[in-house]
Amino acid sequence: MVVNQGSGHWVITITLLAAVMLSILPMPLWAQWGRPAIVAMVLIYWVIALPEHIGIGVAWTVGLLQDIVVGTPLGQNALALSVVAYLALILYQRLRMFTPVQQAVVVFVLIGLNQLLCHWIQTLTGTVSPNLLFLLPALISALLWPVLSVFLRLLRRNYYVN
């Protein structure tokens, strides 16, 4: 039997790189606090879709790349995304059965955790948020999740990523 090597992984790479790029796109001042955690969302999608290929290693690498690009302490996003990927790996069988709304609720929790971890690390390095607005991206991400997952599923079907 031939071992499944998977195909079309360049699509995953490109979507992840595009997500990192979107995470530094300038936003208007009023929308700054609500920037969706797009990298974490794309990562969660690919973990749910292809748990045998995309896991904590990829999460760590992407997180490190995001740290370099954004300029956060090296390892901050890497750690947070690894935790998110780990939880998504545990949950993927259930998540696949969920309706988009139920999935969005889980995404809300995962991204919230991501934000919380990032904020903890930032607090250690001296930047303290004055309020809980840093959790707003979790809500925005959950609202955007159905759109993003449909879009990525289309990509996956079109390019036979498996």
Binding site: M21, L65, I68, V69, P73, L74, G75, Q76, I121, T125
Partner: peptide, 27 residues
């Protein structure tokens, strides 16, 4: 992260790594 805070050589490595970020900012 700890290394980034404490050691100067690590900060230099970090500065060198920022070349990876250049194309992202360009796009």
């Amino acid at each position: 992260m700890y290394a980034g805070q404490r050691f100067e050589w690590f900060q230099q490595v970090n500065a060198k790594l920022s070349i990876v970020a250049t194309p992202f900012y360009w796009v």
